[in-house]
Structures are given as C-alpha cells and as structure tokens.
C-alpha cells in the first residue's frame, strides 16, 4: 500500500515534469523524501540574474503537514538577501507554517516564494538574523514558534 504522501508526490512529480512554471525547474527528485528545485525571479527584480536552490523535505504526513522548505546555502548557492529569508536558508513564510493547507503543493510553494522575492524592493536580512541563525535547528519545522 502506498502512503498518501507517495501517491501525492508521484502525481506532483508527473505534473512538474510535464509542465513546470517559468523560472522554476526540478533539479533532483530521486525519492519521495527530498527534492531540489531551482528558482529564478522573472522580469525586473532586485534578484534578476540570480538562481537559488530550494530543498524540500517531506515526511509521510505530507500533504496533511507542510513540507520543510529551505534555500540551499553551500559553495554554489546562497540564500536570497530578503527580509523573510535568514542567511542559513530558513524562510519565514506563513504558508510553510500555520498557513499551510494540504491543497498546496511543491509548485504552489515555489510560485509563492517566487512572488515573495519578486515583490522585494530592498535587499536585507530579517531583524535578528544572527541570533536566529545561531540558535535555529537545522530543520526549520523544528523551530519552536513560541519561545523566541
């Protein structure tokens, strides 16, 4: 019996392969636990010509529970300089937390993040970035929402 998350991700994978929104590309999806997608902001933007890499992690509760989504930070990629993105790649977006709905998908998350970047006019880190990065666990879903 395939779990709900596998079935759902299978379907999403098929759709992404068929028709991926502009500026978004699937980089790696070898299993149903971790996917990588690249993200570019189209048109005029403070992020024009920059490419970012997103890492999606799914547990078997997906899509009932949200995926864990971060920007990859390594020797090739940086997290976008944005007031909702910490320098460790953690993203501060409601849809990835309380505002998650099971009808949202990998593509819709990418599109949301794309428009979040597109609407940005001033490149800067969130307030308290350093403190957050120092104490945040690796997985943003494990961040305690109430203690900070």
């Amino acid at each position: 019996m395939s779990s709900i998350s596998t079935r759902r991700l299978q379907k999403e994978l098929k759709e992404i392969n068929n028709d991926c929104p502009q500026g978004i590309a699937l980089v790696k999806a070898e299993d149903f636990e971790t996917w990588y997608l690249s993200l570019q902001v189209l048109g005029e933007s403070v992020f024009a010509d920059e490419t970012f890499l997103l890492k999606f992690r799914f547990d078997n509760q997906y899509p009932i529970s949200s995926p864990s989504v971060t920007f990859v930070v390594d020797e090739h990629f940086q997290a976008p300089l944005h007031p909702h993105v910490y320098s460790n790649g953690h993203i501060c977006a409601n849809i990835l937390g309380d505002g998650w709905s099971p009808v949202l998908s990998v593509t819709s998350v990418c599109i949301s993040l794309q428009s979040m970047l597109a609407s940005c006019t001033k490149k800067e880190r969130p307030e308290g970035n350093d403190r957050y990065v120092m104490f945040a666990p690796e997985d943003p879903k494990k961040v305690d929402h109430f203690s900070s």
């Binding site: 709900i4 079935r7 759902r8 379907k11 899509p63 009932i64 909702h84 501060c92 977006a93 409601n94 849809i95 505002g99 099971p102 009808v103 949202l104 998908s105 593509t107 819709s108 998350v109 599109i111 949301s112 993040l113 428009s115 979040m116 597109a118 609407s119």
Partner: peptide, 29 residues
Amino acid sequence: RSAAESASRSKATPEPPTSPEYTICQICF
C-alpha cells in the same frame, strides 16, 4: 499572513475544488 502568502493567493492557489469536475480528492488523488 505573510506577503508571500498574499501573493500566492492570487497566483498559486489551485482552482477552488468547488468546481463540479473534481470527483477525485485534491489532496491524496
């Protein structure tokens, strides 16, 4: 609500599943 989500609402939200053509669950398919 974050800016991201307000933005997502206009662009990324799938068609409302109210439409009668959905006979399959839009979460688990």
